[in-house]
Structure formats: C-alpha cells, structure tokens
C-alpha cells in the first residue's frame, strides 16, 4: 500500500512551498530574516540529533557553530572572495574534529555532568577568542566578501546576491533535514535511539555505546559547523558571541520549544524563537522578560513542544486523545513519525 502524502508530509511540503515562494514578495528585510531563521533551524536540528535522539543534552553546541564561522573568517583572504567549496569543507572539518576530540572527554560523563563539561569546553573556546588576538579579540573579525561559488570558472550562483543566498540556505536546510532523517532510518540511527531509551541494555546487547555516541556527537558538531559557516557568511563578521553560552542556550531552547525528538520540531522551534525575539525586541527593550514568560508558559502547557499542537488540535476536534505523548523524562523519540516524513510507509516496526 502506497500512501502518497502522509499526515506529516503535507504540512512539510506546504511550508517548503511557502519558503520557496517567499522572496517573490520582495520583502528584503524579511527575506534576510528568514535566511537567518533557516540557518538557526539547521543549527537546532543538529542539536536535536544529540538531545532528542541520542539523549545527550549539550549546553556547548555553539562551540562547533562558532568554530566553523571563525575558521571561515581566519582562512578567507582579506581582499578577495574565498572559495566557497574549499572553505566550507575546511570549516566543517574543523568543527567535526573539534567535536571528535571534545566528545572523547565529555562523553565519559552523564546527565548533569555532561551538561556542565560541554558548557565548560564551549566557554574555553569563547575565552580563547575573546581574550587573545587569534580572532580579533572581543571585536571579532570581518569578512568583506562572501565566498565565491565558482567551480573551474563556472559560477552557478552568487552569494552576494540576497536571493541567491536565501535559496542556497533553503536548499541547505532541506538537504540537512533529509540527511538527518536518512541517518535516523539507518541501523546507526536506530541504535542511537536505543541508547537514548536504554543505554545499559544496549551495552549488554553488544553495542560499543561510547563510539556510537561519539559518532553522533561528531555528526551533530559538523552540522552545527555548517550552520555556523552560513551564519558567518550572512553577517560578514564573527565575534566571540557566536560561541557564547547564550548561543548554546538559545539553540537548546529552540529544540525544547519545538519539541525534541523530531527534526521538523527543532526547525519549528527555531522559527518561533527568532520571530518572537524580533517581534518582542521591536516592542520593548525589556523583551527578554516577556520572552521568558512565554517560554515558561509554552513549556508548562505544551510539554511536547510546538509540534504537538497539530495532533492535540486534531484530537480535540475529533474528541479523541492525542497520539503525541508529552515527553516526560525518557520520552520515546519519534522514529516512526520521522520515517513517515520520509518516503516510506512500509515500516516494519
């Protein structure tokens, strides 16, 4: 039986269509805002792989985001555009290596200690860039030219063009999403969710749990690096704030707001978080107070995150109980949902 459009796929395709059509309205400010949001969505999804699927609540994820941004700013030539493909590769590689090395240390800890050591490592990077001249100190570094996408003389698109940059980011978001869903469907992905659910049993079934977690941490770090690279491109500068614990905290909030354990949830979280931030800060300079209240209310009344609104509404309309359980403690991540978001409906389990 072939299900053509699953319940989850329809809203996803619709959102994609809206995002793809948005620049036609020629609202440059909002096009740039959406670009930023989509970059944050990639960042949030990369963290959801750790938080929602591997059970690793990291409070230092900005380290990998910021490292890639700094890598671009440091290796880019000052008076001409850098090669996009080369610098992107190097930046992601730096983030991946950093995640591997940091992972070797932090993954020896669990729970609240894990949160603390990831925070500590990220702060180390923050102070390295803040207090030394390596990356221009607290002022950061400027990037005067956006990277050049030319391959052997042929230039498929131009990142200096706002629209081109928008679509480049949109495609990056879509590719990241499907890549992550694909990983989740693999034996490796299933093992990660097993580790989140019952790490001890995974160990006794013969899984070298540490290496699985390390691989997940490195994949999450690389993808965070990808987002950090795009962000540095967009703004044309990097400063230590992009590695700060505020940044790590914000992205964690996005994951929690959207609903951990589903990549589209993390993306929803990024959209709502950044839009709220923009909206509230345009109203008052005490916007963080209102932001805090809204977050508390959302967490209290929507413990499953914003992504659970749909099923809850449907359930109350149909008078049935919702099929999305709020994640209380060890919630089951939605492998099934995420898989149906992909292309198969013949799932065996």
């Amino acid at each position: 039986m072939q299900q053509i459009v699953s319940r989850l796929q329809l809203p996803l395709w619709l959102s994609l269509a809206v995002l793809a059509a948005f620049p036609l309205f020629e609202l440059t400010f909002y096009t740039e805002l959406l670009t930023k949001i989509m970059i944050m969505a990639i960042f949030a999804m990369s963290l959801d792989l750790l938080v929602g699927y591997t059970g690793l609540v990291s409070l230092g994820h900005a380290a990998f985001f910021g490292l890639a941004g700094y890598t671009l700013a440091l290796i880019a030539p000052q008076y001409e555009a850098a090669n996009l493909w080369l610098t992107l590769g190097v930046a992601i590689l730096v983030s991946a290596l950093a995640a591997l090395v940091i992972g070797l240390f932090v993954l020896r800890t669990k729970g609240v200690y894990f949160i603390m050591v990831t925070l500590a490592f990220a702060q180390m990077f923050y102070f390295v860039f803040h207090d030394t001249d390596l990356g221009g100190g607290s002022d950061g570094l400027f990037l005067y030219f956006k990277p050049d996408a030319a391959i052997a003389g042929f230039k498929p698109f131009d990142l200096e063009n706002t629209l081109h940059f928008y679509y480049f980011v949109l495609i990056s978001l879509v590719v990241s999403y499907f890549l992550l869903c694909r990983i989740l469907r693999s034996p490796f992905g299933h093992a990660l969710v097993g580790i989140k659910t019952n790490e001890h049993r995974m160990q006794s079934l013969g899984y070298p749990v540490f290496y699985y977690k390390l691989a997940s941490f490195a994949i999450g770090g690389s993808l965070a690096g990808f987002a950090g690279y795009l962000s540095a491109c967009q703004y044309g500068f990097v400063n230590p704030e992009i590695l700060s614990w505020h940044q790590s905290g914000s992205v964690l909030l996005m994951v929690i707001l959207g609903g951990q354990g589903a990549f589209y949830g993390a993306a929803i979280g990024a959209f709502v978080f950044v839009l709220l931030q923009e909206f509230l800060s345009s109203l008052t300079k005490h916007w963080q107070l209102f932001m805090g209240v809204i977050i508390v209310l959302l967490v209290l009344y929507l413990p499953g995150g914003l992504r659970s609104i749909g099923p809850l509404l449907r359930a109350s309309l149909l008078g049935k109980t919702a099929n999305v359980k709020p994640p209380a403690g060890n919630d089951p991540p939605d492998i099934a949902q995420e898989e149906s978001a992909n292309d198969r409906s013949d799932s065996l389990h």
């Binding site: 469907r185 693999s186 034996p187 490796f188 699985y212 691989a215 994949i219 389990h349």
Partner: peptide, 13 residues
C-alpha cells in the same frame, strides 16, 4: 551483530 554498524545511509529494515 551486523558487521558494519556505521553505515549511516542504509535503511535499518
């Protein structure tokens, strides 16, 4: 018991 556990782009099923 799968010999290549880190094949991340194949379907588990």
């Amino acid at each position: 018991r799968q010999p290549r556990p880190f094949k991340i782009f194949s379907s588990a099923l």
